[in-house]
Design a protein around this nucleic acid. Structure first.
Lengths: 195, 195
DNA sequence: GTCTATAGGTGGATAGAC
DNA sequence: GTCTATCCACCTATAGAC
């Protein structure tokens, strides 16, 4: 279950997004520049402005594409009609896959920089996390109903906690270069749901 | 239990650190400049270089002071000889106090920007988180022994999970401007320890 | 300790040729 | 679509007067 497969084309815009995404996930939005992308792609900075007139538009496209891909993975997971416990494991393995690539979640990184981002990017981030929470909430409710999960909290609040804990675990695992930490957090989160 | 009381003096270096800290906690290390501090302090940029010759030295001083203050609070909490459950509540209320000030944890913010930081700052961050985890680990072990806490994991791994979950909860609560989320995460974390 | 002045670099962005 | 050339704002940092 991967977040960054190339989907054919290889159009220049997509390649720009690929490079920019990797830069944001490792360095952050405020720590990368058009010059970085231009060097990696071996074109001039000016060319990039043809595809993305402003850095803000590039940033917004990054979030849109990321949410689209993320949503696609979640739909696949939900479509398998597996038990809630297995769906949760798959959900967390999506995060683990990003981390294995030595990257932070794109939107987790941007959440740290939230205050410095243009409004449209802030709104897109809200939307991404809302989508995640809603998906998780549904899985949690299903797990409660068929008694495959055990917990007391409101499903929505618990979904928010899980997202936050996963983002925090990614952030600290990455800065400590220790994937084991993340896996331990995943086990602890699942144990807290009785699985 | 607060993280940013003025401790007398008001020396220029301290005032620079106060302003820089607030800027890093809200905007990040890569999104603030000497110009921002100079404007807030009503001096010129050049004056700042007298106190902190480079931005890297300023950043390092920020982490050192923050860890020093944090450690001081933890020593006070530990010194009260209260039950482990109460110490954990106090620990988490330190984080809550930072968030109530509309700030991210200084070191949590820097952890997101980890890859872009100068080596000395990276080492200082490692030290800060190691100190936190060690303190928490001790409290968790005490709680296990006097049976005031219930959990299965290794205390160290659990301490790492708690720190990561708190940092993640702060980050998302701040970007959603919703302190309630953070409090819910705190309750969930405590519930996971049987309290 | 703080100032003016300035250096040398990089940021995002635009105009216009090809 | 990509290029060269250029703009202006901003960055960190330094020299030297006061």
């Amino acid at each position: 279950m991967q977040m960054d497969r190339h989907h054919g084309s290889g159009e220049t815009s997509e390649r720009i997004l690929d490079i920019a995404q990797q830069l944001v996930q490792t360095r952050g939005y405020n720590a990368f520049s058009y010059a970085d992308i231009a060097a990696a792609l071996q074109v001039t900075k000016a060319s990039l402005h043809y595809h993305f007139p402003s850095k803000a538009s590039l940033g917004l496209s990054l979030i849109s594409r990321y949410e689209h891909r993320f949503r696609h993975l979640l739909e696949i997971i939900a479509g398998k009609d597996e038990p809630a416990a297995e769906q949760l494991r798959s959900y967390m393995s999506v995060y683990a896959g990003v981390l294995a690539d030595h990257r932070m979640c794109l939107c987790g990184m941007l959440a740290a920089e939230f205050e410095t981002l243009p409004k449209p990017m802030q709104s897109a981030l809200d939307h991404f996390f809302g989508m995640n929470e809603t998906w998780l909430e549904t899985v949690l409710r299903n797990g409660l109903q068929d008694q495959s999960l055990r917990f007391d909290e409101e499903p929505r609040a618990l979904a928010q906690f899980i997202v936050a804990a996963l983002e925090g675990a990614m952030m600290l695992a990455r800065s400590h270069a220790d994937d084991g930490r993340f896996q331990a957090s995943v086990r602890r989160l699942l144990a807290g749901l009785g699985i």
